[in-house]
């Protein structure tokens, strides 16, 4: 056994794409600055050298055009990976990614599937202001026909992305610019495939279930450590995929803890968090000591000022407050 290998989140994403492209010639990567620039965030660094310009394809700034190109290519049998520099920029490609990819199989009565992966940075970056800080899971998870994965650690980033590339359905893969430099253990030389619809217990606990995904997993773990000092023992579940949603793991946990806090970095109104809370209420109605408490991004456009942005996002303090409120009287 060699020592545990630690790599950055962005390296894990690159390994997933590289391994899958070596394995399957139908897989290719396209997007803005993915080739010659080596990726706006260096996720695709070196891939042009290995695979050449026919498979690592720079596009002009034309999200609607190249997202639609990928969907047409997928209908013809290829397996494109589309990199959106930011999911915020996917809004100008809303018609192809929402109206075509997730509906093609249905509208064609089972004739044409769309095995395409759309991936890129989601959520607030560092003081990027309103237009560049979208958490698209709030809107996009509403659409049947797509799958959605939101990894929180490098090993899951690799395993979920490899699964996404092999999947025959369209997958929306949401990364976070804030996490690309995060290091974590990713086994070398092993085939890592993380199945969709299977949450991961990040911290076991008996008093309160915190259900979350993506970057807020780390805020939840930070909160759980703080709360442990107050004698509140939290169980943190990282759902990893939103569609499919592993409600079973959350229900099993809540039946044990009797309280639940959902943490979701999208806006609260009509969000994955509100859906999860509704499902927990339905399945755990007799087990809950309190209603499901929710921590979301503030219901305002993303601000620029550093202090306002910190207050806008979910954070450990807000999660602690929600857990205390949920477990009060418990």
């Amino acid at each position: 056994m060699s020592a545990l290998r630690e790599i950055e989140f962005r390296d894990a994403l690159r390994e997933a794409m590289t391994e899958e492209m070596r394995r399957d010639q139908r897989v290719f990567l396209l997007g803005e600055e993915v080739a010659h620039y080596n990726g706006a965030y260096k996720v695709s660094k070196g891939m042009l050298d290995e695979f050449g310009p026919r498979r690592i394809i720079d596009t002009p700034i034309s999200e609607s055009g190249f997202a639609g190109l990928a969907i047409g290519a997928a209908m013809q049998g290829l397996r494109p990976i589309v990199e959106f520099m930011s999911w915020s920029f996917s809004l100008v490609a809303a018609d192809p990614i929402l109206n075509n990819a997730p509906k093609m199989l249905y509208m064609s009565g089972g004739q044409f599937g769309c095995p395409v992966v759309f991936r890129g940075n989601d959520g607030a970056g560092g003081q990027l202001g309103s237009t560049h800080s979208w958490c698209v899971e709030g809107m996009y998870s509403n659409v049947p026909g797509l799958k959605m994965a939101i990894p929180a650690t490098p090993d899951d980033a690799k395993g979920l992305l490899k699964t996404a590339i092999r999947d025959d359905d369209p997958v929306f893969f949401l990364e976070s610019e804030r996490m690309l430099g995060m290091k974590g253990h990713v086994p070398e030389g092993e085939e890592i495939l993380v199945p969709f619809g299977q949450g991961r217990i990040r911290r076991a606990g008996a008093d309160c279930t915190i259900a979350t995904w993506g970057r807020p997993v780390h805020f939840a773990l930070e909160a759980a450590e703080a709360l442990a000092k107050e004698g509140i023992d939290c169980e943190v579940i990282d759902l990893r995929t939103i569609r499919p949603l592993d409600i079973g793991s959350v229900v099993r946990s809540v039946k044990k803890t009797s309280t639940c806090v959902v943490v979701d970095q999208s806006w609260s109104f009509g969000s994955p968090g509100s859906e999860l809370a509704a499902q927990v209420h339905k399945h755990c109605f007799d087990d809950l000591d309190n209603f499901v408490h929710r921590v979301h991004t503030a219901d305002v456009p993303a601000p620029y000022a550093y202090n306002l942005e910190q207050e806008y996002l979910p954070n450990a303090r807000k999660i602690c407050e929600a857990v205390r409120a949920a477990t009060y009287n418990a």
Partner: peptide
């Protein structure tokens, strides 16, 4: 764009 993708 779909036609473009088919031809691509």
């Amino acid at each position: 764009p779909l036609g473009l993708g088919l031809a691509f």
